[in-house]
Amino acid sequence: MEQGYRRSAGSARGEARRQALLESVTEDLAEHGLVDFSLRRAARAAGTTHKVLLYYFDGVDDLLVQAVDRLRARRIDNSMAAAALQAGQGTLAARIEALWPVLVDPRSGHRVLEQSTGLAMYDPARYSKFGREATQQYLPPLLALCPPEWSERRRTEVAELILATLRGLLLNRVIGADPASVEAGFAALLRALEREEAAT
């Protein structure tokens, strides 16, 4: 059983309450980021007390991990939906180009997700899930965007290239890199993907 579910698992009403609290905290994170995140701030955002949050979650780290997971899943779903619009007619590069606006949309919580990667590097003992689980969540959808006729190895290599490049570009945006240089890097990724697909 996952952390945070133990106290409400026996009650549909309790689980609904837990989900509502988590959604409120997730929205606060998307808007304000990780700086100064605490159980008390989360409680204010959810319109409750920190004691209520401790009833439904196993502490601030558990709450933070679940909120970040929710933001990441939302971002993946939205970006893959955008990419799917190109599935029948577009190249791999066109599908990646279609998901880029979703990844950089402030409403996607991108700043929080890039900040969480920083936490994984700063304190891996507490936050390694932000790095490892992010990769586990992102890779399968990216693999699905690759041409099905490619070998599994080739699809994996290209999906990992896409993920690493997108992560780097998104991180550069968060730390204040010149937007034009970020867009130039993304354009270079698209050209690399076009060459890769042309080599089929």
Rank of each mutant, 00 (worst) to 15 (best):
M1C: 08
S8D: 05
Q19V: 06
L22S: 03
L22T: 01
E23S: 15
S24G: 10
S24D: 08
A30E: 02
V35L: 07
R40V: 15
A45Q: 00
A46V: 05
T49H: 01
V52H: 01
Y56D: 06
D58F: 11
D58T: 12
V60C: 11
D61Y: 11
L64I: 03
A67T: 03
V68Q: 02
D69I: 04
D69E: 14
L71P: 12
R72I: 04
R74A: 11
I76D: 00
S79I: 02
M80V: 12
L85F: 06
L85C: 10
Q89A: 08
G90T: 05
T91Q: 00
A93H: 01
A94L: 13
I96V: 15
E97G: 08
P106C: 02
L113R: 05
M121R: 15
Y122C: 04
D123C: 08
T135H: 12
P141S: 03
L145V: 02
R154Y: 09
E157I: 13
A164D: 10
A164M: 10
A164C: 06
L166G: 06
G176T: 08
P179V: 08
A180D: 10
A184L: 11
F186T: 04
A187N: 08
L189I: 10
R191M: 11
A192S: 09
R195L: 14
A198Q: 15
